[in-house]
């Protein structure tokens, strides 16, 4: 049943959403254009109130857009909801959802019914998910007695019951400890590896999570996409040149930073202290030089010049910008400045 032009996992065109609030209308989304290919793990990164959850709610049929349109594997999220809901699932972090009086297995069984699975098939899937999350020991425990991490694993187990083609994850690891967050990420990766084409759209505050997991990332603020690309592409936006840090015992007396700057392929040279801050470095046991180059190959000339002058080389490292730096440059503030929740990792 494969057509000639295959649909994107997510295709959103000009999505806007305005809420009526007491103080007047609030624009949560302001013209989002997005295309996610089948099989991608796509991240949406943005500060509080950027519109991340609103976007996920619209794509997962919980909310209607005010303007624009979106489809999931070619199915319209406004008009073809019944079909969309068969091929997607959703997990939000930070909410303690669940019927406290039900056991883990009972709640999963109930959702299996809501997903339209026949009883036997549903129970087999429930038990398989319980096993794959390693939560057999709590399968007959009441949900009211679960820890935050166990609840979120249960929530994830539910989301896999209908073998979704696309999984929407809204800050899924918020409030989880390092090991529970890792378990959840591993399961998401395994879920994608099991079947080619399975797609994940993840919103997060955690830079490390986005950097580590996502094939591509969109940075959003005030309901708009400010930039999107692979993590490497985004980092290249803030730093186009190759940046190396070279540690030497001392700068030879015959040499100045200006003489290094004059070497071919060198764009900039700056002295840097061990803690990374710019400083004179006089009298310190080691001097670090931050050297910006047009391309990696120009490093050889710099090193040989330093060596010829009698400097002893102690370390060389390539300095990569972090996503945090990309974020600060695009959004104008750090993600943690706009957020009380501290980065878990």
């Amino acid at each position: 049943m494969s057509g000639s032009t295959s649909p994107a996992a997510v295709q959103a065109t000009g999505i806007g959403r305005v809420f009526d609030a007491k103080g007047g209308p609030v624009t949560a989304l302001d013209g989002i254009d997005l295309r996610i290919e089948p099989g991608e793990l796509f991240g949406v990164l943005g500060p509080n109130g950027a519109g991340k959850s609103t976007l996920i709610k619209i794509l997962s049929t919980l909310l209607l857009p005010s303007t624009g349109s979106a489809s999931i594997f070619g199915l319209d999220v406004v008009t073809e909801t019944a079909r969309v809901r068969r091929i997607m699932n959703l997990v939000a972090g930070g909410d303690f959802s669940g019927y406290g009086l039900l056991t883990v297995r009972e709640q999963l069984a109930m959702f299996a019914q809501f997903y339209g699975l026949p009883y036997r098939e549903g129970m087999a899937k429930v038990d398989a998910q319980i096993a794959s999350f390693g939560i057999e020991e709590i399968r007959d425990r009441k949900i009211s007695a679960l820890s935050t991490g166990q609840r979120q694993k249960l929530n994830f187990a539910r989301s896999f019951l209908n073998d979704p083609w696309i999984l929407f994850l809204d800050e899924p690891t918020i409030g989880l400890d390092v090991s529970a967050a890792r378990d959840v990420r591993d399961r998401v990766r395994a879920f994608q590896a099991e079947q080619p084409g399975r797609t994940v759209l993840l919103t997060t505050h955690y830079m490390a999570e986005a950097d580590e997991m996502c094939d591509r990332i969109a940075i959003v603020d005030h309901g708009r996409i400010l930039a999107q690309g692979t993590p490497t592409e985004l980092k290249r936006m803030v730093q186009k040149d190759a940046l190396f840090v070279v540690g030497i015992d001392a700068l030879p007396a015959s040499m100045s930073l200006d003489s290094l700057r004059a070497l071919p392929g060198v764009i900039s040279v700056a002295a840097r202290d061990a803690d990374g801050s710019d400083a004179s470095g006089v009298g310190s046991p080691m001097r670090r030089l931050a050297i910006g180059l047009k391309e990696d190959g120009a490093l050889g000339g710099v090193i040989s010049t330093l060596a010829a002058g009698g400097a002893h080389l102690q370390e060389i490292s390539k300095s990569e910008p972090t996503l945090e730096e990309v974020f600060v440059q695009l959004v104008g503030r750090g993600i943690s400045e706009s957020d009380e929740v501290s980065d878990g990792e």
Binding site: T61, R85, M88, L90, A92, F96, S97, G98, Q113, Y115
Partner: peptide, 13 residues
């Protein structure tokens, strides 16, 4: 209270 409505609403049911 149970905060499950979104998950139920997002099922085909």
């Amino acid at each position: 209270r149970y905060r499950t409505i979104r998950y139920i609403f997002a099922t085909p049911s």
